[in-house]
């Protein structure tokens, strides 16, 4: 038997064996490093209990015309506004192609639906079987996320050029349909998934 590690040039050291050890070590450290690194990154993502989606139920029957409340849904504030007939009419007259964001941004509708007032209002909400909801009520209700789509502040009610919401942080103006009209915000306020579970109870989520 001859020593496989022995040759004249290396005096007993086999360079191919050393190369193999080198590549195997670097490979293990490199690949292992990436795998070991991932848990340290991923731990910062929302935890399982946070991800467990919740729902919020709102009694919209108590809302008088022109009134607005702010509710919390999945950690975020949401506006619930019962608009006056004049506000709905004014909002419905706006041509969609004149809006900075023409997308309805409505989780109840297909992506890319036009941002008409109808598509923004609670007319788009799902209605549970056997439930009847007044259509005027549905058309007058606007439920939307309350964080400005620019940098997340909550716009002030009843202010701005359109008499609906004005974001105090960087000056975005929204109309009574929650659509961005002027300012740095890129998108309309998002409409959450919603379902009428009774004539006056709206469930978000």
């Amino acid at each position: 038997m001859t020593d496989v590690n022995s040759n004249h040039e290396t005096g007993g050291e086999d360079s191919s064996r050393r190369d193999f050890l080198y590549i195997a070590t670097v490979g293990a450290v490199g690949v292992g490093g990436v795998f070991a690194f991932w848990p340290f990154i991923d731990q910062m993502n929302p935890a399982a209990d946070t991800l467990a989606l919740s729902t919020t139920e709102i009694n919209v029957g108590d809302l008088e015309e022109g009134a607005e409340i702010t509710v919390k849904f999945r950690e975020r504030p949401h506006f619930v506004r019962r608009r006056t007939a004049e506000e709905v009419a004014a909002s419905a007259e706006v041509a969609v192609n004149s809006l900075p964001d023409g997308d309805a941004r409505n989780a109840n509708l297909a992506a890319g639906s036009p941002a008409t007032d109808e598509n923004r209002s609670a007319l788009s909400a799902v209605i549970d079987d056997g439930v009847e909801v007044d259509e005027t009520l549905r058309a007058s209700l606007l439920v939307s996320g309350a964080n400005c789509t620019h940098l997340g502040c909550v716009p002030t009610e009843g202010a701005g050029d359109y008499g609906a919401w004005f974001c105090p942080c960087h000056g975005s103006h929204y109309d009574t349909s929650g659509r961005i009209r002027r300012g740095p915000a890129p998108e309309n306020l998002p409409i959450p998934p919603m379902t009428f579970i009774s004539a006056t109870t709206l469930r978000l989520g």
Partner: peptide, 17 residues
């Protein structure tokens, strides 16, 4: 942003980190 927050908004997870 959700990775930074550890949730759907700025919250307790955000404050801790």
């Amino acid at each position: 942003t959700e990775w930074l927050w550890g949730g759907f908004s700025v919250g307790n997870a955000t404050l801790n980190r």
